[in-house]
């Protein structure tokens, strides 16, 4: 981690600054500004009427609660996969490792198409679940499953490197001192991976909040029941109700921004932690 900063000794400051600023301005900042101006132009009362309407509130509730449940599941699954992939060696390990990234590689619309087909009453999963009274398609369970699928890799990929780095001698020392495996995990391993685990969970949650493609296929899109915020924005655009779309998009943008800051804070916590334990 030793790093010497040479003040502008290296070339390319002007060029890279110019390109970066131009690109960020045109591709990222200007469009965001256009939306902020739209929101800024509508007045506080109008804005509040839109973002606090019953339908919007229901959409937040559905979106956030589904993302939360998906994140809890992915936290547990991610921990399991990261553990198995770093601690054990077994046939098929590399394939399993590669498969974890499938949700990043597979387009969300394809994921949605696949999930809605699998969980249809006649689908491979649906025919097992539906007779037992568990309906997934067009219910909130469908939203949760779509969100889960698309954000599986986050926790695995943040926890995995940290688990790999944990010094084995620390664990061995704890074991020779008579610690049970559970004590080793809860006292030694868990505190070390906690920052990375949290960062992975926040990333997973952020992705679930914004997920659209996979969800619209499998969610019933019923206002107040299975309508997520992204879909409501899409409907407002189609209705030519641009104020409505802008206000809701602003809410999602603020949420994304807060989560981004939280991730960065968690990651710098993790870096400090890693430096200290070294």
């Amino acid at each position: 981690m030793a790093q010497r900063r040479s003040k502008h000794l290296l070339p390319g400051f002007g060029l890279t600054l110019g390109v970066s600023m131009l690109y960020i301005t045109i591709i990222i900042a200007l469009p965001l500004l256009a939306m902020l101006l739209k929101v800024g132009g509508m007045g506080w009362e109008e804005f509040w009427r839109i973002v606090a309407s019953n339908r919007s509130l229901a959409a937040y509730r559905i979106t956030f609660s589904s993302a939360f449940i998906a994140t809890i599941f992915n936290g547990a699954l991610g921990l399991l996969l990261a553990w198995v992939l770093t601690r054990y060696s077994f046939p098929g390990k590399r394939i399993l490792d590669a498969l974890v990234d499938l949700p990043f590689a597979l387009p969300t619309a394809v994921a949605g198409l696949v999930l809605v087909t699998l969980f249809a009453p006649t689908g491979w999963y649906g025919q097992l679940l539906e007779p037992n009274g568990f309906k997934v398609n067009y219910t909130q369970a469908g939203i949760i499953i779509a969100m889960t699928f698309t954000s599986i890799p986050f926790v695995v990929r943040t926890v995995q490197p940290v688990l790999e780095d944990i010094q084995v001698d620390l664990e061995e020392a704890a074991k020779t001192l008579g610690a049970t495996p559970w004590q080793v995990f809860s006292r030694v391993i868990w505190p070390t991976i906690l920052p990375a685990f949290m960062a992975g969970c926040v990333l997973s949650f952020a992705r679930a909040l914004g997920e659209f493609g996979a969800v619209v296929f499998i969610a019933g899109n019923l206002p107040g029941k299975t309508e997520i915020v992204s879909l409501l924005i899409f409907i407002r655009i189609d209705e030519y109700n641009y104020e409505g779309a802008a206000a809701l998009a602003f809410v999602l943008l603020v949420a994304a921004f807060c989560l981004l800051l939280l991730t960065n804070a968690l990651q710098s916590w993790q870096t400090r932690y890693a430096d200290r334990s070294r």
Binding site: P31, M35, G210, I233
Partner: peptide
């Protein structure tokens, strides 16, 4: 930021631009 926002928001901001 673009990785953190919903793709719908991404499309919407371009519509407003």
């Amino acid at each position: 930021l673009p990785a953190a926002v919903s793709p719908i928001v991404a499309g919407t901001v371009y519509l407003f631009l």
